[in-house]
Simulated assay, not measured.
Amino acid sequence: MEDLTGFQRDLLYVIAGADQPSGQSVKEEAENYYDSDINHGRLYPNLDTLVNKELVEKGQLDRRTNYYAITDAGEARIHERREWESQYVDF
Rank of each mutant, 00 (worst) to 15 (best):
E2K: 15
D3P: 00
D3Q: 09
L4A: 06
L4N: 05
T5Q: 03
T5C: 02
G6Q: 06
G6M: 07
G6T: 08
G6Y: 07
F7I: 09
Q8T: 04
Q8E: 15
Q8W: 03
R9Y: 13
R9H: 09
Y13T: 08
Y13K: 14
V14G: 00
I15G: 01
A16G: 01
A16H: 12
G17E: 06
A18H: 14
D19H: 14
D19G: 07
P21N: 06
G23V: 02
Q24I: 11
Q24H: 12
S25G: 08
K27T: 04
E28M: 12
E29H: 12
E29I: 10
E29S: 13
E29A: 15
E29M: 11
A30R: 02
A30S: 04
E31Y: 09
N32Q: 15
Y33D: 07
Y34D: 03
Y34S: 06
D35V: 07
D35K: 13
S36N: 08
D37F: 10
D37P: 09
D37Q: 13
N39V: 09
N39L: 03
H40Q: 11
G41E: 01
G41V: 00
R42K: 11
R42S: 08
P45W: 05
P45L: 05
P45Q: 07
P45F: 05
L47T: 07
D48C: 00
D48S: 10
T49S: 14
T49F: 07
T49N: 12
L50D: 01
N52W: 04
K53S: 11
K53I: 05
E54A: 08
L55I: 05
V56D: 01
V56P: 03
V56A: 06
E57G: 00
K58T: 05
K58C: 09
K58M: 14
Q60I: 04
Q60H: 09
Q60R: 13
L61T: 11
L61W: 10
D62Y: 02
R64E: 11
T65R: 14
N66A: 12
N66R: 10
Y67I: 05
Y67E: 01
Y67Q: 02
Y67A: 01
A69W: 04
D72S: 13
D72Q: 13
A73N: 13
A73Q: 12
G74F: 01
G74A: 03
E75I: 00
E75F: 01
A76I: 05
A76T: 11
R77V: 10
R77A: 14
R77S: 12
I78D: 06
I78A: 08
I78N: 07
I78M: 10
H79K: 14
H79G: 02
R81Q: 11
R81A: 12
E83D: 09
E83I: 14
E83R: 13
E85K: 13
E85W: 11
S86E: 14
Y88R: 12
Y88S: 08
Y88F: 15
Y88D: 02
D90R: 11
F91T: 08
